[in-house]
């Protein structure tokens, strides 16, 4: 069976996607963790799942809905209390617009 090994290139790409900057030690630790996860999935692959429907969710519950009724009011003071920086009741973030 083919076993996926996480190489440096994969690590680099995952770091970019996750926007993480890891030290060499951290990277090695993360690689080990991720390898363990993949190995576990490989283990699961040994099972014969022919005829088994893919599971979409671990709970056997469907159709949990809300009605289309406004229940929330203006709580922007409380919401903005979480903002590291704000201006005129808006979240101030590093420049994004090109």
């Amino acid at each position: 069976m083919y076993v996926v090994k996480i190489d440096d290139k994969t690590m680099e790409s995952v770091e970019i996607l996750a926007q993480l900057r890891l030290s060499d030690n951290e990277r090695e630790k993360a690689r080990e963790d991720m390898q363990k996860m993949l190995d576990y999935v490989e283990k699961l692959n040994e099972l014969d799942t022919k005829g088994v429907e893919p599971m979409s969710h671990i709970f056997p519950v469907n159709n949990v809905f809300r009605e289309d009724i406004v229940t929330n009011g203006d709580s922007r003071e409380a919401m903005l209390a979480n903002a590291p920086r704000q201006k005129e009741y808006q979240y101030l973030v590093p420049k994004t617009v090109e």
């Binding site: 809300r66 009724i69 406004v70 229940t71 929330n72 919401m79 009741y89 979240y91």
Partner: peptide
Amino acid sequence: TKTKIFCGCSTKFGARPNTQTCPICTGM
């Protein structure tokens, strides 16, 4: 719709900034 897809915040257009937000639609 009157409310957002996953929370009971109003979707009314043109409201003052961030007056129609809650922990769900700000990803808390």
